[in-house]
Write a protein that binds this DNA or RNA. Structure first.
Length: 603
RNA sequence: GGUUCCGUAGCUCAGCUGGAUAGAGCAACAGCCUUCUAAGCUGUGGGUCCCAGGUUCGAAUCCUGGCGGAAUCACCA
């Protein structure tokens, strides 16, 4: 048992002995002592003063005496008001460093500790889920980074994770791009234009919308139609719908073009994903799942869990849930978004029997997932309760929401270009890479640029909307990814200088060391890492990790500024500091890894 | 209008299941490189934690009601 547990045990026992009544479970609260007080752990004694029938100070002193007496690790204590501040022995902290230095998995649940393969039910995490008609933008970037990081987080906490992507490859949107390409494309391909496939297809989507706008304007003028009606009546729109009908009917020519253009998009997405550093264990395509959704709905209809209206459309009655009824199949038998999601949930359950199905999807779809759960419940699906919507906030620009129509979307590829360019400029200004090869430079700028971007996005609480200002480019100083990466590189530099042989040897440094304030602070923060991973995984909040690892880096830099490591004349002390530095670097590496951010050896 | 989420320094954000005097970064100003990487460190100024009640020994945190903002309430996805 860890020290917190043992302290809590002694406290509980002694209170019970003395007052004849045990404190309630949540009443024994142990927390880190605040920096401005002496001590390591603090017990809040207010909850027991009534039981003990003594003043808070007396109660605290009583418990403090007992702890010092019973536990070797508790060396001394002081009492401030109702707060009992406990100081643990130097040896306790030194032992912690000695035990964990050199462990590459520090803070993570080791793969060996995980149950046998196949015996544990996995968590399926769906993220990204792009439409195939346009390239990825900043909103998708937040989604991808969150999804990937949450997957790492769950894995780091010992869960088995399956990362899946659900590609929305069918529907009217792709037909629009197809139509514009057929009409205006003159056989253009990614090869012939040198454009990324997703960008090319996106261009045709934009082309469609602009041509459609012209037609709509014309119709509104000529026929005096309202905008909505004009959109419906526009020839291009009708053609797009016709294309969709032909696709659903399996028309060879249409399917051929559909496959061709989707193929281009996938190549483009793959490049973007790779560059972003995210990946998937399994890719689902909506074109494969929507039919299963249809079947599931029809099956539900047969079992009278759903009902059919006179026009033939199929609905779920959600009156009991105080929600409006939800359409699941149109009168013409075609499916809607919800139908498709019923199908994918079903398929996913077949494929993995997951304990939990996480959907990383923006908060604009809160209602959708609420309804999805209710409908699955109605259909008696056992996995209805397994669905968890990890709802995240929008990325806003200073002008407000990104709008493709107003050309204010921030393209993912361009953004990464800019981040890498900034990384290059900053690094060259600082003159840090003179002895790097071209390949090393390229790699480093990628690593730093992406690190800055990822950290910037992940440090914000997922559920909150966040602001991105393209004018002020993302910072590289202060609470940023590069600052943390830099701290890691700094430590690695020291460790390199020390040399491998010495590092191996120092792992059991002598114990007889008096700890300095900055050293102790750093140790205590690192000590928290495993607990932080656990909590972050439970909350599915990478932000928790991001803010934590920043604290680690900040504290290391203070320590580094105040104390020498290799130049420390006391050999034992030098050895210890080397270990502390090594464990700090490992903590930073592992924490950043959970965010999907890599750290450099040199920068 | 109903539902959900958000509101903390000039700006961007932390603040864990209620705990001590509310913290960082940016921006501003002032310092620190003959010593292991200055993308660093130190200091100064900057707060009605949206407002009002309530619960509690104790509330930025929990509850109720306002105010402000966002999302959603589709036979779009």
């Amino acid at each position: 048992m860890n020290i917190e547990g043992r302290i809590a045990e002694v406290v509980t026992q002694s209170i019970e002995e003395l007052s004849g009544q045990a404190p309630k479970l949540g009443q024994v609260v142990l927390q880190r002592t605040r920096k401005d007080f002496e001590g390591d752990l603090t017990l809040v004694v207010f909850p027991f003063v009534k039981l003990m029938r003594r003043s808070p100070e007396e109660t605290a002193r009583f418990i403090g005496d007992l702890l010092v007496e019973k536990l070797d690790e508790v060396e001394r204590f002081n009492v401030v008001k109702g707060f009992l501040n406990l100081s643990l022995s130097n040896n306790y902290w030194l032992e912690f460093i000695r035990k964990n230095t050199g462990d590459p998995d520090f803070g993570l649940v080791k793969p060996s500790a995980m149950p046998e393969k196949g015996t544990e039910k996995p968590v399926v995490v769906e993220y990204s889920s792009p439409n195939t008609n346009k390239p990825l933008h900043l909103g998708h970037v937040r989604n991808n980074l969150l999804g990937y990081s949450v997957s790492c987080l769950l894995q780091g906490a010992g869960r088995k994770v399956v990362k899946v992507n659900l590609v929305n490859d069918r529907g009217i949107h792709i037909c629009k791009s197809m139509l514009a390409w057929m009409r205006f494309g003159r056989g253009e391909t990614p090869e012939s234009t040198g454009k990324k496939g997703d960008q090319l297809v996106g261009d045709y989507y934009v082309r469609f919308e602009s041509e459609l706008r012209d037609q709509v304007r014309q119709l509104m003028e000529d026929e005096q139609l309202g905008e909505e009606e004009a959109r419906r009546e526009a020839p291009l729109m009708k053609e797009a719908q016709e294309l969709l009908r032909r696709w659903e009917a399996g028309d060879d020519e249409v399917v051929k073009i559909w496959k061709l253009m989707n193929g281009w998009v996938y190549e483009g997405f793959d490049a973007t994903y790779k560059r972003m550093g995210v990946d998937f264990d399994k890719i689902y395509y909506e074109s494969d799942t929507y039919l299963l959704g249809k079947d599931t709905v029809l099956d539900g209809l047969q079992r009278k869990a759903l009902y059919r209206k006179e026009d033939g459309s199929v609905w779920a009655d959600l009156q009991d849930e105080k929600l409006d009824d939800k359409l699941l199949l149109r009168a013409d038998g075609t499916s809607v978004y919800m139908t498709q999601d019923i199908g994918t949930a079903q398929l996913r359950y077949y494929d993995y029997q997951p304990e939990l199905m996480v959907y990383v999807v923006g908060n604009e779809q809160n209602h959708h997932f609420n309804v999805l759960k209710k409908v699955l419940h109605k259909l008696d699906k056992p996995y209805a309760e397994a669905i968890y919507h990890l709802s995240y906030g929008m990325v806003e620009l200073p002008q407000g929401k990104m709008k493709s129509r107003e050309g204010t979307v921030v393209d993912a590829d361009e953004l990464m270009d800019e981040m890498e360019a900034t990384a290059r400029r900053m690094t060259e200004e600082l003159g840090k890479t003179q002895d790097f090869s071209d390949a090393e430079k390229k790699e480093l700028y990628h690593l730093i640029g992406l690190g800055a971007l990822k950290y910037f996005i992940l440090k914000v609480d997922p559920k909150k909307n966040m602001l991105f200002n393209p004018e002020e480019s993302i910072d590289f100083n202060g609470n940023t990814g590069p600052f943390i990466q830099y701290t890691h590189a700094r430590i690695r530099s020291v460790l390199r200088t020390a040399g491998k042989e010495r590092l191996m040897r120092v792992h059991d440094f002598s114990a007889d060391i008096e700890l300095q304030e900055k050293e102790k602070q750093l140790i205590k923060t690192i000590y928290d890492f495993p607990g932080v991973v656990k909590e972050a995984a439970e909350e599915m909040s990478p932000a928790r990790i991001a803010n934590y690892v920043y604290e680690v880096a900040r504290e290391f830099n203070q320590f580094y500024h105040d104390h020498s490591i290799l130049n420390e004349p006391d050999k034992q002390l030098s050895d210890f500091r080397l270990c502390l530095s090594e464990l700090t670097a490992q903590t930073i590496r592992n924490a950043m890894g959970l965010l999907g951010i890599r750290v450099p050896e040199r920068m």
